[in-house]
Design a protein around this nucleic acid. Structure first.
Lengths: 147, 147
DNA sequence: GTAAATGCAAAGGTTTTGCACGTTA
DNA sequence: TAACGTGCAAAACCTTTGCATTTAC
C-alpha cells in the first residue's frame, strides 16, 4: 500500500504542524526521488521552483520529519547527512568505498527477519536496551569501480 | 591473541611510515580505551602529556590508520567521526537515541555469520558488488534512559 | 641529508542559532 | 490574530589545506 503525499501532509497536520509550501515541496521531492538526498541538494533543486526558499528551512524541515519518523537520516561517510523517505519495506545499503555510490537493497532472505529479531531479543535482555530499529551497511566495491 | 602496541608500531613502520611520537601516543590511546573516540577527544587528552600536539596531526594520523585498516571510522550521528582500533572480533553497535551512548556487542548467534555470508553472496551476484565488510547498527533506548 | 611529518593559521564545508518578518489555521 | 514558520546573516562546528619548521630514518 503505497502512501502518497496526501497521507504525508496529514501526518504533518495531525501532529500540530502547519502545512506550509516549503514543507510540501520538500516532502514531494523526497517522495519522488529514488536517491538519498542531502539538505543542500534539496535546497539547490527547490530554488528553481521556489527561489525564496532558505537552506535553514530545509534543515529545520528535515529535522522535524526525522523526529516525526517520516524520514531516515543516514551518514554514508561523505561529510553530509543524507535523507530518505521511510518506505514500508525494510531495506539496507550497499556503499561503494571508491565512488561513494549507495544502492538500496530490499531483497532479503526470509531468515533475516527471524535472526535479527532473535539477536535483538538477546541484546535487549543482556543490556536492558530497547531496540526499535536496525540498519545494516555493506561496504565494498561496485560494478563500475571494479573494472 | 591480543596484539599490543608493539605489533601496531611494526605495522606503521612496515608500510614505510615513520613512527613518530604523536603517532605512538594516538595508537596507545586507541589501544587502551574502551570508548569510541573523536579526533577532538584524542587531541584534548594528549595535550596533557604532550602540549605541542596539533589537532591537524590527530586528523592526519587517524586518516592514515584508517587507510592502513588498523582502525575503523564510524558515524553515530553526533556530528563528528569516531574511531576505534580494529579488534579481531567482529562486533556491532547499540546506539541510544536519547543519550547517544554506544555499546559494543560481540555476542552473536553463530547463525549470523552464515546468514550474512549468504546475503553478501546473493547481493554480490545481483549487483556485481564486491562486499568486504558489513556493519550493523541497532538503535534504541538504553537502560538508564528508559527509567 | 632528505623525504616525511608536524603544528600553526587560515580556509572550507556543513549545520545551527538569533531575530525580524510572513504566513497558517 | 496569535502562534508558528521562514529567510537572512552570522555563528558554531568539524575537518582539510598551505606552508615553514622539525624530525625520523
Amino acid at each position: 500500500m503505497p502512501r502518497g503525499p496526501r497521507w504525508l501532509y496529514e501526518r504533518i497536520r495531525s501532529q500540530g504542524f502547519k502545512l506550509t509550501l516549503p514543507r510540501q515541496l520538500i516532502l514531494d521531492m523526497l517522495n519522488k526521488t529514488k536517491h538519498h538526498l542531502s539538505a543542500d541538494e534539496i535546497y539547490i533543486f527547490l530554488r528553481r521552483r521556489y527561489p525564496q526558499i532558505g537552506l535553514t528551512t530545509v534543515y529545520r524541515t528535515l529535522e522535524m520529519l526525522t523526529r516525526l519518523g517520516l524520514i531516515n537520516k543516514f551518514d554514508f561517510g561523505d561529510g553530509r547527512s543524507r535523507y530518505e523517505l521511510k518506505k514500508e519495506e525494510h531495506h539496507h545499503h550497499l556503499i561503494c568505498k571508491k565512488c561513494g555510490k549507495v544502492i538500496d537493497c530490499k531483497e532479503f532472505v526470509d531468515e533475516e527477519v527471524a535472526l535479527i529479531k532473535k539477536i535483538e531479543e538477546s541484546l535487549s535482555k543482556k543490556y536492558s536496551f530497547k531496540i526499535n530499529f536496525h540498519q545494516i551497511y555493506f561496504y565494498g566495491i561496485c560494478k563500475e569501480c571494479s573494472k
